[in-house]
């Protein structure tokens, strides 16, 4: 397998964390992984993105120019990254915030109202986990068990109280993704 992923949206939407969780769960699955955040001037504008690679082979470049999976959390990111998505690639986007207005037909589309669903759960900050749930539903990878163990490890003791609501969000995305 060679998964090259870009996650993009606004700062504060948990983009970097979502990428880390994917990379960590991938590692727990025994894969080679890299995670590379955007830093620098573009962060000042409030956007955030990161690149994740999950691979059977040792990873050369950690830079993803043409992803085969795209997580999109806001409109400008869709416009910026959609043209780079490889044919046959997967686009997961938050349909509460993003209006899909492209004519591309050569990709797999998952529209999930992650922000609206997160409000139902009671915390907008967990929309990122809902998106991850949808990804796992579609790909069957990484396993739910590894994702949740990555979540637990990343939250650590300090934020252990946040585990439960994040898990609920992840499972919500999982269910939604399977139905979609």
């Amino acid at each position: 397998m060679f998964e090259s992923i870009i996650l993009a949206g606004f700062g504060g939407q948990g983009i970097l964390l979502a990428g880390r969780l994917l990379a960590l769960a991938g590692m727990k699955e025994g894969k080679h992984v890299t995670w590379l955040p955007s830093y620098g001037p573009e962060m000042r504008g409030g956007t955030a993105n990161c690149m994740v690679i999950i691979s059977n082979e040792p990873i050369g470049s950690p830079i993803v120019t043409f992803p085969n999976t795209l997580f999109i959390f806001n409109q400008p990111s869709l416009e910026k990254f959609l043209p780079k998505l490889l044919p046959g690639g997967l686009l997961i986007y938050d349909s509460s915030l993003v209006n899909y207005n492209s004519s591309r037909k050569d990709i797999d589309l998952v529209a999930i109202p992650a922000t609206r669903l997160s409000v139902d759960i009671g915390d907008q900050r967990v929309a990122n986990l809902i998106m991850l749930g949808a990804y796992v539903a579609r790909k069957g990878f990484p396993s739910t068990e590894k994702m949740l163990s990555a979540l637990k490890e990343t939250l650590g003791e300090k934020k252990a109280s946040m585990f439960e609501i994040n898990e609920r969000a992840f499972r919500k995305g999982l269910t939604y993704g399977k139905e979609a």
Binding site: R20, H32, T34, L36, P37, I63
Partner: peptide, 10 residues
Amino acid sequence: DGFIGQMMEP
């Protein structure tokens, strides 16, 4: 370089 500093890897 900045990539090595900023990236994550096992």
